[in-house]
Amino acid sequence: MPPYSPATVVSALRAAGCVFAEDEAELILATARTPDELAAMVDRRVAGLPLEHVLGWAEFHGLRVSVEPGVFVPRRRTEFLVDQALAQAPHASVVVDLCCGSGAVGAALAAALGRVELHAADVDPAAVRCARRNIAPFGGHAHTGDLFDALPDDLRGRVGILAANVPYVPTDEVDLLPAEARDHEPLVALDGGADGLGVLRRVAAAAPEWLAPGGCVLVETSERQAPSAVEAFTQAGLSARLAVSEELYANVVIGVRP
């Protein structure tokens, strides 16, 4: 096969159904270091691999975040969760990124807040390896384990911002997700249980003992699930409210420890 030209890259991506073929081609052409690497990247994208996995990075809240194949790709709408956390706790000194995936949320919070004690945790070892690299520039610590079990005990009662981008797709709706997510991202990062709120309820129930007085926990959910999510926070003893971005289709539940 002859080397790809910019025009043939665009044509190949468009033929594969990439809606933003021109933009994606520009990113791939800028990232590839050799003609062989360019051909391999185009082939992987045409085969359906998420663009971020092809590139090896994702743009998130002004950062270029490393993303490996098999690791959850940070969504642009989750930037709203970061902004809500910064507005709620602009002087937080201890930050935890739970269900961290690539660690994008923790890295973005640390980049904005300055010098903080940063911890990220995920049940998926591949995600933790990826997160460790992304939070290293901020002196962050990455931990493997199930939710709070992964965290050092000395964080109890000290956390100013607990960001938990939990999985919230109901189990019987996972098959309805786009193929890029369904086929290339870990199920544990997508499946939130029967009603999609199983992990969220566990986070809400345990969060108060980890938060500092006035500390906040933030989770993303769907519009349909939001009332039940707020109720879970309230039942855990948190002062709860819902923040919505119609532009980003983002719904974030914010709970504050009294």
Rank of each mutant, 00 (worst) to 15 (best):
M1V: 14
M1T: 14
S5I: 01
A7F: 04
A7V: 10
T8Y: 08
T8E: 14
V9E: 08
R14A: 01
A16K: 10
G17F: 09
V19G: 03
A25Y: 07
A25P: 09
E26Y: 06
I28K: 03
T31H: 06
T31R: 15
E37A: 07
V42H: 11
D43M: 11
P50F: 01
P50T: 01
L51A: 06
E59G: 12
E59C: 10
H61M: 03
G62M: 01
G62A: 02
E68M: 15
P69E: 08
V73R: 02
P74Y: 02
R77E: 14
T78C: 08
F80I: 01
Q84I: 00
L86A: 09
S93W: 00
S93Y: 00
C99S: 06
G101K: 05
G101S: 05
G103R: 04
V105W: 03
A108K: 07
A110S: 13
A112T: 04
R115I: 02
V116S: 06
H119I: 00
A121S: 13
V123I: 14
P125A: 05
A127Y: 07
R132I: 00
R132K: 04
R133V: 14
H143A: 10
D146W: 10
A150W: 09
P152Q: 09
D153P: 04
L155D: 08
R156S: 05
R158F: 06
R158N: 06
V159P: 02
L162R: 00
P167E: 06
P167W: 05
P170T: 14
T171Q: 02
V174R: 02
D175G: 13
D175K: 12
L176S: 15
L177G: 08
P178S: 00
A179R: 13
A179I: 07
A181F: 00
H184W: 12
E185P: 04
L190C: 06
G193S: 01
D195V: 13
D195H: 11
G196N: 11
L197H: 08
G198P: 01
V199R: 04
A204E: 08
A205T: 15
W210V: 10
A212Y: 09
G215A: 09
C216L: 13
L218S: 10
L218F: 13
E220V: 07
A226F: 06
A226W: 05
P227M: 07
P227A: 08
V230M: 04
E231N: 10
L238W: 05
A243M: 13
V253C: 09
G255R: 01
R257G: 03
P258Q: 14
P258A: 15
